[in-house]
Design a protein around this nucleic acid. Sequence first.
DNA 1: AACCGTCGCAACCGCCGAATT
DNA 2: CAATTCGGCGGTTGCGACGGT
Length: 216
Amino acid sequence: MEARNEYRKGLWTVEEDRILMDHIRVHGKGKWNRIAKMTGLKRCGKSCRLRWINYLSPSVKRGDFSEEEEDLIIRLHNLIGNRWSLIAGRVPGRTDNQVKNHWNTHLSKKLGIKNKGKTKANASLPSLSRKLGKNPSVPMESNSEPPSDCTCETGGKTMVEDGSQSTFKFASTQEITEDNNCGSSLWFSNDDLNLLTPYLMEPLDGYSLDFVLDGL
DNA sequence: AACCGTCGCAACCGCCGAATT
DNA sequence: CAATTCGGCGGTTGCGACGGT
């Protein structure tokens, strides 16, 4: 079906990166599917978007994750599960892909979460599936708009180091089920969060809750 | 030095909801 | 209002790098 277009796959070359960046510099982000036509780049729109978001964007931080970042990811994951984009939105400069990869390769190991090798990924949380989004009973709050693209700034808020080394005891997250509504939407309302049991909130001690939840 | 298994990360896939036509 | 396109998400795969034997 797609034989006619023959988009390239695999790793991006320096030249492809340059073409994409030039295009974005001139035309801005968006309209990803038109980039191929406009630039002659043999990459589908999705691929372009991913390349920009995960690698080329100047807001993407490279390099190792700091302890603070790991700490935050662990806490947020404990709270909301595999909602990588949501978690990434709270970790300045990190993308969902980075967070997901780091979790799967480092943190899950560090925390002793079985990953069954590389296949059939973990789903440490019964995955608050997006399919639940069809639940009509979800109260969508007016303030529950999603974080904008690359909301990486922390708004001047600082994280508090609690001084403890990374020994986290995890309460079971199994309690978060469809019944809690919180899986019904990408974004939690304040009420939704109140449904979370205290022990789920506890791992966030040391952080301003506002910092964690702001924009959710 | 060569082989092999594992690891880590970039990228792809399939699905879904929102936006546009 | 229906159909189509677009953008975004989480899960999964592919492959190069690396380390052990």
